[in-house]
Computed example of a mutant assay.
Amino acid sequence: MVSMLKWKIPVYILAGISVVALWLFTLFLGQTFFTTWTERGQFGDLFGSVNALFSGLAFVALIYTIHLQRQELSLQRTELELQRKEMAASRGELAAQVAVQKSQVRATIAQIRVAAVEARIEATKLTGSGRDSLTNIYSEAEKIEAIANELENG
């Protein structure tokens, strides 16, 4: 079914237009059917209760708006609390990642030390002969073992 209106007009705008149109209609009605000011005054007094009704409705709408704002603020507080918890969990994860990265750095440094000691061992093998070179090789092997123990302990 094709809609008669191409635009969707908000309800509050339609209500406002209706109130203004009704007000203009009563003005026209008062001018047309009541010729004296006394009659017009009595006709106007008929709408005193309508004024009270609209004032009461406006007050109820205000209270309802405050209620909706309180609900929205409560939801925002809940959301902020969840965000704080999530951020705390993220900080914990980041701290764990930092610890892992530090241990990786220590392991890399140890690998570099081991490679340097192995290079010295190979250099000693190539250049030296006899008991001194064997002592140097054992000494370097002990250094490698000390590095391994250091990594294992901590």
Rank of each mutant, 00 (worst) to 15 (best):
I66G: 07
L57P: 04
H67R: 08
W37S: 13
S55W: 03
Q83G: 09
S55I: 11
L94N: 11
E93T: 11
L80M: 13
G44V: 15
D45W: 04
R77S: 15
R84D: 08
H67P: 02
S55M: 08
L94C: 06
K85V: 09
F47M: 03
I66P: 00
R70M: 02
F54L: 05
Q42M: 09
G92H: 10
A89R: 13
L57R: 01
A52D: 13
Q76D: 10
L80I: 13
A58W: 02
L80N: 13
R77I: 09
R40F: 00
L57D: 01
G92V: 05
L68I: 06
E72Y: 04
G56Q: 00
S49E: 09
M87T: 06
Q76V: 11
F54T: 01
T65G: 08
Q71H: 01
F47I: 02
F43P: 03
A95G: 03
S90N: 09
R77A: 15
Y64N: 06
E86Y: 03
G56P: 01
T38S: 15
A89P: 11
F54P: 01
E86D: 09
A52H: 15
R40G: 00
Q83A: 12
G44K: 12
L62A: 05
D45I: 12
R40W: 00
L73A: 08
H67S: 06
G48M: 14
Y64T: 08
V60E: 05
L94E: 13
R84T: 03
D45C: 12
A89D: 14
A88Y: 08
L82V: 08
L73P: 04
Q42E: 15
L75H: 04
A52Q: 12
T38A: 12
I63H: 01
A88H: 11
Q42W: 04
Q42S: 07
Q69S: 10
S90K: 11
G56K: 00
T38R: 15
V50A: 14
G44Q: 13
G44H: 13
L68M: 05
L80V: 10
E79N: 06
T65R: 11
Q71G: 01
L82E: 14
Y64G: 04
L46S: 10
